[in-house]
């Protein structure tokens, strides 16, 4: 069994973990990117770019790098991006953790209304619905008019059907 990674795989392991210091770098000082989404996308783009540049430079200098090695390296980078993406979304937008943080910020006990008011910074449940709906509208999966929300074309229907299928596949109860 070969335990040593090839050059593309080894570099992917390095740059996969490098996403974290890159995110820290882009979070402070003059390099700071205000939008959390843009910050994450920039960090992963820089890591992929650096990985690709180094692989390309090594190949141009005559170093033999096999395609399975590049494929394995791509999969390792992909794994790191998805794993850190899940953690990043939990830290930035995690619903349950944000609710807990909001309750901790209130002085004394709170009823549900006051608790949610603290979570949304004064927003109502309707504002929260709009916030979550904005993802679907932004992706073009749903559209909205003055009174109602609807699935948008074939893409919306396909994705909605996929969600229902996947919930059943994983044994989750129907909505």
């Amino acid at each position: 069994m070969h335990l040593y990674p090839g050059p593309a795989t080894g570099l992917a392991l390095l740059f996969g973990f490098f996403i974290v210091p890159m995110l820290v770098f882009l979070s402070h000082g003059t390099a700071r990117i205000d939008s959390a989404k843009q910050r994450f996308l920039t960090a992963i783009a820089l890591c992929i770019f650096a990985w690709g540049i180094i692989i390309g430079a090594m190949m141009m200098m005559g170093r033999s790098i096999s395609w399975p090695d590049i494929l394995a390296g791509s999969m390792i980078l992909f794994t790191a991006i998805v794993a850190f993406g899940i953690l990043w979304s939990l830290v930035c937008w995690g619903f349950t953790t944000s609710l807990l943080a909001a309750l901790c910020s209130i002085d004394g006990a709170a009823n549900r209304y006051a608790w949610f008011h603290a979570y949304g910074g004064g927003s109502s449940i309707a504002d929260f619905t709009d916030d979550r709906l904005s993802i679907l509208l932004g992706l073009g999966i749903a559209k909205i008019d003055e009174t109602s929300v609807m699935l948008s074309g074939r893409l919306g229907y396909v994705i909605a059907s996929s969600v229902i299928f996947l919930r059943r596949f994983y044994g989750l109860p129907d909505e």
Binding site: R132, L133, A142, V149, G156
Partner: peptide, 29 residues
């Protein structure tokens, strides 16, 4: 794992499921 966590917890995807179950895939907000 990503696909599971999306369909398990995402409020946005829950909305999609509700919309698809409505007549004409349309619902009042």
């Amino acid at each position: 794992f990503f696909v599971f966590s999306a369909v398990y917890k995402s409020v946005s995807l829950q909305m999609l499921g509700i919309l698809s179950a409505q007549k004409d895939c349309r619902a009042n907000k």
